[in-house]
Design a protein around this nucleic acid. Structure first.
Lengths: 225, 225
DNA sequence: ATATGAATAAAACATTTGTTTGAAACAGTC
DNA sequence: GACTGTTTCAAACAAATGTTTTATTCATAT
């Protein structure tokens, strides 16, 4: 027998989905309340106002997903750098796209993408609590994978390249589905995708290391109309 | 002496910025009209309704940027595959982030990002007219760079990895600025960024080619809680 | 100069939407 | 069983917003 969630929790779940799909402004409390089988006034009662609900959703989304899919393997599995990189990438894909992550109630992944685009004040906390630590973890991994040969700027560049690939799949899923059906970032493809991004990134990092001596002015040789 | 733009054009310019910054729903025709020094009714007069204005903005944004920054070098510069890849990546960065591209009136880049997240019906045209050809151009380049060794699925995967990196910089600019100040995707960094993504991607493609024999089940060896 | 059609302007209209209110239902405690 | 604090509910409110209407101005060709 499944115990029904209390109103407050139902609101947070549904709101995560609707806010994600439609954006903060376009999502209406009426629709959220209706789909959660709650009264319109419930939002104001439990969360003071629409923005309060949004804040609660944001916190809920991040805390759950990072608990379910941490970025670092358990300490006893003291993995070598490449394995750690692979683990990190796969965790990211599952967090973003799996049913148990933000893909299941599939508005939530989009909600985060929206925050990246236009961070609301409510996101400041999240950046410090969740995102910055991720940056540090990944930077350490990249540094190790490169054998300590990269300077901080290049480490970050590589980290952004890696995260960019992962997030792009979430973010652009609707378009990717349109023009490359086979690769749609759905549950069954997550292992394939993680594996691809892992290999691609490994090659990328190594190439950056190997071409460290080349100056960065290469670009300027070519004509750009 | 600079001739002032007619109302219709002013509306499109301003609307591109405001739609991008705030999203379709949150952007109000009142604000758009006011900032364009036009009457509220001008939107309905020139574009029938708010959505008509949006459609006009979308078409305007894409046609201008692909004209200004094409993805393919002029034919007389029959470049080798790697140069073409570099050219493609740099065009993409400049299109998205330069002042002359969508970064100048800086809401426009965001507007496109929003369309990726939640394509509106108006975007169908754009996908077919602009995006799908881009996919084909890049696929051909990747295929050539790999020496023709990659199957279609892997070619697309690599193409998505490349585009993902470029778009992520646009898309996540606000966050990147927060946690990695040096790399902010601003005008002065575009060459550095293009160069980085170019090298990283070249290494990525080559690694995918070199590890073609490895099965894709690697991921499944590791534990995921 | 005048007639004609396009463009602009101000005001009004009809909805939508976040929030508030006050009463009713409910749960637990003395 | 009465009391108290919490939660739910329906109705009403006030602000905002896309659109329409009607009148006026502007440009141009006859």
């Amino acid at each position: 027998m499944i115990k029904p969630l209390p109103t407050r929790e139902r609101l947070i779940d549904i709101a995560g989905d609707i806010f994600g799909r439609e954006g903060f402004k376009a999502a209406t409390v009426r629709k959220i309340a209706e789909e959660a089988n709650a009264n319109i006034a419930a939002v104001n009662y439990h969360f003071r106002d629409k923005e309060g609900l949004y804040r609660a959703v944001l916190e809920d989304i991040f805390s759950k997903a990072f608990q379910r899919f941490p970025s670092v393997p358990p300490p006893e599995a003291a993995a070598d750098p490449e394995k750690r990189l692979h683990f990190f990438i796969r965790a990211m894909f599952y967090r973003f796209l799996s049913r148990e992550g933000w893909g299941g109630l599939s508005g939530q992944g989009k909600l985060i993408a929206r925050e990246f685009l236009n961070p609301t004040p409510a996101f400041d906390n999240i950046v410090e609590t969740y995102i910055r630590p991720q940056k540090n973890i990944l930077s350490a991994i990249v540094s190790d994978v490169s054998g300590g040969k990269l300077d901080p700027d290049r480490i970050i560049s590589c980290a952004v390249s890696i995260i960019g690939q992962c997030i792009y799949y979430t973010f652009a899923a609707p378009i990717i589905e349109k023009i490359a059906e086979n690769l749609a970032p759905v549950e069954e493809n997550l292992d394939f995708l993680s594996d691809h991004v892992f290999r691609f990134s490994l090659g990328g990092i190594q190439r950056i290391v190997n071409t460290l001596h080349e100056n960065n002015g290469f670009a300027r040789q070519e004509a750009q109309p």
